[in-house]
Lab assay of single mutants.
Amino acid sequence: LKLEELTVSELRQQLRLRGLPVSGTKSMLLERMRG
């Protein structure tokens, strides 16, 4: 599964599971997911 294919709400869910901030735009969330 490519990160880009996730919805913003799915990205936020994944970030929350990792204890990361869930604020910002989709591109910011993607950068955060990539670490």
Rank of each mutant, 00 (worst) to 15 (best):
L1Y: 14
L1F: 10
K2L: 05
K2V: 14
K2R: 13
L3Q: 08
L3P: 11
L3A: 08
E4R: 03
E4W: 00
E4T: 11
E4G: 03
E5G: 06
E5Y: 05
E5R: 09
E5Q: 08
E5V: 07
L6C: 08
L6G: 03
L6D: 06
L6F: 12
V8C: 04
V8K: 13
V8M: 10
V8T: 14
V8W: 13
S9M: 15
S9Y: 07
S9P: 08
E10V: 05
L11H: 01
L11T: 05
L11C: 00
R12T: 10
R12M: 07
R12N: 00
Q13N: 11
Q13V: 12
Q13T: 15
Q14L: 07
Q14F: 06
Q14D: 03
Q14Y: 07
Q14W: 11
Q14G: 06
L15E: 06
L15M: 10
L15A: 15
L15P: 02
L15R: 01
R16Q: 10
R16C: 12
R16S: 12
R16P: 00
L17E: 12
L17W: 08
L17K: 13
R18I: 05
R18E: 11
R18S: 10
G19H: 10
G19T: 02
G19P: 03
G19S: 07
G19E: 09
G19M: 05
G19R: 07
L20A: 08
L20I: 02
L20W: 02
P21K: 04
P21L: 02
P21G: 08
P21E: 13
P21W: 01
P21V: 07
V22S: 11
V22K: 03
S23D: 15
S23L: 06
S23I: 10
S23Q: 11
G24N: 02
G24K: 00
T25M: 04
T25I: 00
T25C: 05
T25S: 14
T25L: 03
T25Q: 05
K26C: 01
K26R: 14
S27I: 07
S27N: 14
S27H: 09
M28N: 06
M28H: 14
M28S: 06
L29K: 07
L29Y: 04
L30A: 06
L30K: 09
L30E: 09
L30Y: 00
E31P: 00
E31A: 09
R32K: 03
R32M: 06
R32G: 07
M33A: 11
M33V: 09
R34Q: 15
R34D: 06
G35D: 15
